[in-house]
Simulated assay, not measured.
Amino acid sequence: MSVVRPEFGPTLPEMLGPRLRALPRAVQAALALLVVAVLVWALALRGGGAGAPNGVVIRSPIEANFLYRAPFTRLAPAAGELARVGGGGQTFSVRELRLPAYRGDAAGFLPIYTSQLEREMARAMPGFQSRYEGRANVNQIQGYEIQFQYRPRGRLVYGRRILLLPGPTARQGAELLLVAPRSPAIARVDAVGKNGPLKTSLRSFRFGTERP
Protein backbone atom coordinates (compact mmCIF):
# COMPACT_ATOMS: atom_id res chain seq x y z
CA MET A 1 0.00 0.00 0.00
CA SER A 2 1.41 3.39 -0.99
CA VAL A 3 1.97 6.02 1.70
CA VAL A 4 1.72 8.79 -0.90
CA ARG A 5 -1.58 10.66 -1.07
CA PRO A 6 -3.61 9.72 -4.18
CA GLU A 7 -3.64 13.25 -5.60
CA PHE A 8 0.16 13.13 -5.94
CA GLY A 9 0.02 10.10 -8.22
CA PRO A 10 2.12 6.91 -8.15
CA THR A 11 5.58 6.83 -6.59
CA LEU A 12 8.75 6.21 -8.59
CA PRO A 13 9.07 2.56 -7.41
CA GLU A 14 5.41 1.97 -8.35
CA MET A 15 6.06 3.37 -11.82
CA LEU A 16 9.35 1.56 -12.44
CA GLY A 17 8.57 -1.73 -10.69
CA PRO A 18 6.50 -3.35 -13.47
CA ARG A 19 8.94 -2.20 -16.14
CA LEU A 20 11.95 -3.60 -14.26
CA ARG A 21 10.21 -6.92 -13.60
CA ALA A 22 9.44 -7.18 -17.30
CA LEU A 23 13.12 -6.98 -18.22
CA PRO A 24 15.10 -10.17 -18.90
CA ARG A 25 16.86 -11.62 -15.84
CA ALA A 26 20.28 -10.89 -17.33
CA VAL A 27 19.42 -7.19 -17.67
CA GLN A 28 18.05 -7.08 -14.11
CA ALA A 29 21.28 -8.62 -12.81
CA ALA A 30 23.40 -6.13 -14.77
CA LEU A 31 21.41 -3.20 -13.35
CA ALA A 32 21.82 -4.56 -9.82
CA LEU A 33 25.59 -4.81 -10.29
CA LEU A 34 25.67 -1.26 -11.63
CA VAL A 35 23.85 0.05 -8.55
CA VAL A 36 26.27 -1.79 -6.25
CA ALA A 37 29.27 -0.39 -8.17
CA VAL A 38 27.95 3.16 -7.86
CA LEU A 39 27.42 2.72 -4.10
CA VAL A 40 30.94 1.33 -3.62
CA TRP A 41 32.42 4.22 -5.59
CA ALA A 42 30.50 6.78 -3.52
CA LEU A 43 31.58 5.16 -0.25
CA ALA A 44 35.20 5.11 -1.39
CA LEU A 45 35.12 8.82 -2.06
CA ARG A 46 33.57 9.56 1.32
CA GLY A 47 35.68 7.09 3.25
CA GLY A 48 39.05 8.32 2.06
CA GLY A 49 39.81 6.29 -1.04
CA ALA A 50 40.89 9.43 -2.91
CA GLY A 51 42.18 11.14 0.22
CA ALA A 52 43.91 8.20 1.86
CA PRO A 53 47.37 9.10 3.17
CA ASN A 54 50.56 8.21 1.35
CA GLY A 55 53.76 7.18 3.09
CA VAL A 56 57.32 8.49 2.91
CA VAL A 57 60.16 6.27 4.14
CA ILE A 58 63.67 7.61 4.78
CA ARG A 59 66.34 4.92 5.02
CA SER A 60 69.61 6.88 5.19
CA PRO A 61 71.41 8.57 6.91
CA ILE A 62 68.58 8.20 9.45
CA GLU A 63 65.60 5.87 9.42
CA ALA A 64 62.25 7.63 9.68
CA ASN A 65 58.83 7.71 8.08
CA PHE A 66 55.71 9.85 7.94
CA LEU A 67 52.43 10.19 6.06
CA TYR A 68 50.98 12.92 3.88
CA ARG A 69 47.59 13.45 2.29
CA ALA A 70 46.06 15.67 -0.39
CA PRO A 71 46.49 18.46 -1.22
CA PHE A 72 50.12 17.69 -0.31
CA THR A 73 52.30 15.97 -2.90
CA ARG A 74 55.91 14.80 -2.95
CA LEU A 75 58.27 17.67 -3.78
CA ALA A 76 61.92 17.73 -4.73
CA PRO A 77 63.96 18.10 -1.51
CA ALA A 78 65.90 21.32 -1.09
CA ALA A 79 69.64 21.20 -0.42
CA GLY A 80 70.32 19.16 2.70
CA GLU A 81 66.78 17.78 2.98
CA LEU A 82 65.96 14.08 3.04
CA ALA A 83 62.27 14.45 2.11
CA ARG A 84 59.78 17.21 1.37
CA VAL A 85 56.02 17.32 0.82
CA GLY A 86 53.74 20.29 0.41
CA GLY A 87 51.02 22.18 -1.39
CA GLY A 88 49.19 25.49 -1.25
CA GLY A 89 52.29 27.28 0.02
CA GLN A 90 52.70 24.92 3.00
CA THR A 91 55.64 22.53 3.27
CA PHE A 92 56.85 19.77 5.59
CA SER A 93 60.47 18.70 5.28
CA VAL A 94 62.92 16.44 7.10
CA ARG A 95 66.66 16.84 7.53
CA GLU A 96 69.24 14.86 9.43
CA LEU A 97 70.06 16.36 12.82
CA ARG A 98 73.67 15.75 13.85
CA LEU A 99 74.71 17.39 17.10
CA PRO A 100 78.29 18.10 18.18
CA ALA A 101 79.64 16.19 21.15
CA TYR A 102 78.04 17.26 24.43
CA ARG A 103 77.89 16.09 28.02
CA GLY A 104 74.81 15.04 29.90
CA ASP A 105 71.26 15.01 28.63
CA ALA A 106 70.15 16.51 25.32
CA ALA A 107 67.45 18.46 27.17
CA GLY A 108 70.20 20.64 28.63
CA PHE A 109 72.17 21.02 25.41
CA LEU A 110 69.40 21.70 22.87
CA PRO A 111 68.50 25.19 24.19
CA ILE A 112 72.14 26.24 23.72
CA TYR A 113 72.28 24.69 20.26
CA THR A 114 68.97 26.34 19.30
CA SER A 115 70.36 29.81 20.06
CA GLN A 116 72.96 29.24 17.36
CA LEU A 117 70.26 28.11 14.90
CA GLU A 118 68.22 31.25 15.57
CA ARG A 119 71.18 33.46 14.69
CA GLU A 120 71.62 31.55 11.43
CA MET A 121 67.91 31.84 10.62
CA ALA A 122 67.95 35.59 11.30
CA ARG A 123 70.68 36.00 8.70
CA ALA A 124 68.95 33.81 6.10
CA MET A 125 65.26 34.73 6.51
CA PRO A 126 64.00 38.28 5.87
CA GLY A 127 62.06 39.71 8.79
CA PHE A 128 62.82 36.69 10.99
CA GLN A 129 61.40 36.76 14.52
CA SER A 130 61.55 33.96 17.06
CA ARG A 131 58.11 33.73 18.67
CA TYR A 132 58.66 30.80 21.02
CA GLU A 133 61.20 28.15 21.89
CA GLY A 134 60.89 25.23 24.24
CA ARG A 135 60.51 21.50 24.60
CA ALA A 136 58.64 19.55 21.94
CA ASN A 137 56.93 16.17 21.96
CA VAL A 138 56.01 14.44 18.69
CA ASN A 139 54.48 10.99 19.11
CA GLN A 140 56.27 10.66 22.46
CA ILE A 141 59.60 11.59 20.83
CA GLN A 142 61.20 14.26 22.97
CA GLY A 143 62.92 17.26 21.45
CA TYR A 144 63.09 21.02 21.24
CA GLU A 145 61.53 23.52 18.87
CA ILE A 146 61.56 27.08 17.58
CA GLN A 147 58.32 28.73 16.50
CA PHE A 148 59.02 31.69 14.26
CA GLN A 149 57.79 34.04 11.59
CA TYR A 150 59.43 35.74 8.63
CA ARG A 151 58.41 37.76 5.58
CA PRO A 152 59.60 36.43 2.21
CA ARG A 153 58.66 39.01 -0.44
CA GLY A 154 56.67 40.87 2.22
CA ARG A 155 54.25 38.01 2.95
CA LEU A 156 53.86 36.87 6.55
CA VAL A 157 54.82 33.21 6.96
CA TYR A 158 54.79 31.13 10.14
CA GLY A 159 57.01 28.15 10.85
CA ARG A 160 58.16 25.54 13.33
CA ARG A 161 61.65 24.02 13.43
CA ILE A 162 61.56 20.88 15.56
CA LEU A 163 64.67 18.97 16.67
CA LEU A 164 63.99 15.34 17.59
CA LEU A 165 66.29 12.66 19.01
CA PRO A 166 65.55 8.94 19.46
CA GLY A 167 67.12 8.97 22.94
CA PRO A 168 68.10 11.44 25.69
CA THR A 169 71.83 11.21 24.94
CA ALA A 170 71.69 10.66 21.16
CA ARG A 171 73.61 12.93 18.80
CA GLN A 172 71.88 11.93 15.57
CA GLY A 173 68.20 12.55 14.95
CA ALA A 174 65.76 14.42 12.73
CA GLU A 175 64.99 18.07 12.13
CA LEU A 176 61.46 18.87 10.98
CA LEU A 177 60.59 22.15 9.30
CA LEU A 178 56.93 23.14 8.96
CA VAL A 179 56.13 26.32 7.03
CA ALA A 180 52.75 27.89 6.24
CA PRO A 181 51.63 31.37 5.10
CA ARG A 182 49.30 33.19 7.46
CA SER A 183 45.67 32.37 6.62
CA PRO A 184 42.27 32.11 8.33
CA ALA A 185 43.13 28.48 9.19
CA ILE A 186 46.61 29.42 10.45
CA ALA A 187 46.10 32.79 12.07
CA ARG A 188 48.87 32.37 14.66
CA VAL A 189 52.25 30.72 14.75
CA ASP A 190 51.14 28.08 17.26
CA ALA A 191 48.48 26.88 14.79
CA VAL A 192 51.13 25.48 12.44
CA GLY A 193 50.82 21.70 12.44
CA LYS A 194 47.56 21.76 14.40
CA ASN A 195 45.21 21.28 11.43
CA GLY A 196 45.11 20.29 7.77
CA PRO A 197 47.78 18.31 5.92
CA LEU A 198 50.62 19.62 8.11
CA LYS A 199 48.95 17.99 11.10
CA THR A 200 48.84 14.63 9.27
CA SER A 201 52.56 14.72 8.47
CA LEU A 202 53.63 15.94 11.91
CA ARG A 203 51.44 13.57 13.91
CA SER A 204 52.54 10.57 11.84
CA PHE A 205 56.32 11.15 12.02
CA ARG A 206 58.28 8.32 13.60
CA PHE A 207 61.82 7.02 13.70
CA GLY A 208 62.30 3.70 11.90
CA THR A 209 60.95 2.43 8.61
CA GLU A 210 57.88 0.54 9.89
CA ARG A 211 54.47 1.98 10.67
CA PRO A 212 53.00 0.95 14.05
Score class of each variant (00 low, 15 high):
residue 115 S to K: 14
residue 189 V to G: 10
residue 99 L to G: 03
residue 3 V to E: 15
residue 55 G to E: 12
residue 54 N to Y: 09
residue 134 G to W: 03
residue 105 D to R: 13
residue 57 V to L: 08
residue 2 S to C: 10
residue 200 T to S: 03
residue 206 R to V: 09
residue 11 T to H: 07
residue 71 P to Q: 04
residue 21 R to G: 13
residue 10 P to N: 04
residue 22 A to Q: 12
residue 138 V to G: 06
residue 16 L to S: 09
residue 196 G to E: 06
residue 19 R to P: 05
residue 155 R to I: 06
residue 180 A to L: 02
residue 155 R to T: 10
residue 30 A to T: 09
residue 120 E to I: 00
residue 66 F to Y: 13
residue 111 P to M: 14
residue 60 S to V: 04
residue 19 R to E: 14
residue 5 R to Q: 13
residue 160 R to D: 08
residue 175 E to F: 04
residue 176 L to M: 04
residue 122 A to M: 03
residue 15 M to E: 13
residue 63 E to D: 07
residue 12 L to H: 11
residue 193 G to D: 05
residue 176 L to T: 00
residue 54 N to C: 05
residue 159 G to M: 03
residue 165 L to R: 06
residue 139 N to P: 05
residue 45 L to Q: 15
residue 135 R to L: 09
residue 77 P to F: 00
residue 163 L to N: 07
residue 138 V to M: 05
residue 139 N to L: 09
residue 129 Q to M: 14
residue 111 P to Q: 14
residue 72 F to V: 02
residue 167 G to M: 07
residue 175 E to S: 07
residue 124 A to D: 01
residue 212 P to D: 12
residue 91 T to Y: 00
residue 118 E to Q: 14
residue 78 A to G: 05
residue 63 E to M: 07
residue 102 Y to N: 06
residue 78 A to I: 00
residue 87 G to E: 02
residue 138 V to N: 06
residue 17 G to W: 11
residue 2 S to E: 10
residue 90 Q to V: 00
residue 61 P to F: 05
residue 117 L to V: 15
residue 193 G to N: 04
residue 62 I to T: 03
residue 170 A to I: 05
residue 82 L to H: 01
residue 95 R to G: 05
residue 54 N to A: 13
residue 68 Y to M: 01
residue 169 T to M: 13
residue 128 F to D: 07
residue 116 Q to F: 13
residue 41 W to P: 01
residue 160 R to C: 07
residue 192 V to L: 01
residue 21 R to P: 07
residue 34 L to G: 14
residue 59 R to S: 13
residue 105 D to E: 14
residue 101 A to S: 13
residue 141 I to N: 10
residue 80 G to Y: 00
residue 92 F to L: 05
residue 18 P to S: 11
residue 40 V to K: 06
residue 54 N to K: 14
residue 11 T to E: 11
residue 35 V to Q: 04
residue 119 R to T: 09
residue 195 N to K: 12
residue 41 W to E: 12
residue 15 M to R: 14
residue 126 P to E: 04
residue 196 G to T: 06
residue 178 L to F: 03
residue 204 S to W: 08
residue 71 P to N: 06
residue 47 G to R: 12
residue 83 A to N: 02
residue 70 A to M: 08
residue 37 A to Y: 00
residue 61 P to G: 07
residue 69 R to L: 07
residue 192 V to S: 02
residue 41 W to V: 14
residue 39 L to R: 09
residue 195 N to P: 03
residue 120 E to Q: 08
residue 13 P to A: 12
residue 108 G to Q: 08
residue 144 Y to N: 08
residue 167 G to Q: 12
residue 152 P to W: 04
residue 72 F to D: 03
residue 129 Q to A: 15
residue 37 A to D: 01
residue 143 G to L: 06
residue 204 S to I: 10
residue 102 Y to V: 04
residue 103 R to M: 08
residue 169 T to F: 12
residue 5 R to K: 13
residue 56 V to A: 03
residue 110 L to D: 04
residue 147 Q to E: 14
residue 153 R to V: 09
residue 47 G to V: 10
residue 50 A to R: 05
residue 89 G to A: 02
residue 58 I to Y: 06
residue 50 A to H: 02
residue 28 Q to D: 10
residue 38 V to W: 05
residue 74 R to N: 00
residue 126 P to T: 04
residue 173 G to H: 09
residue 57 V to C: 07
residue 45 L to E: 15
residue 121 M to R: 07
residue 112 I to A: 14
residue 205 F to H: 05
residue 111 P to T: 14
residue 176 L to W: 00
residue 111 P to E: 14
residue 129 Q to C: 08
residue 17 G to V: 09
residue 118 E to P: 03
residue 209 T to M: 02
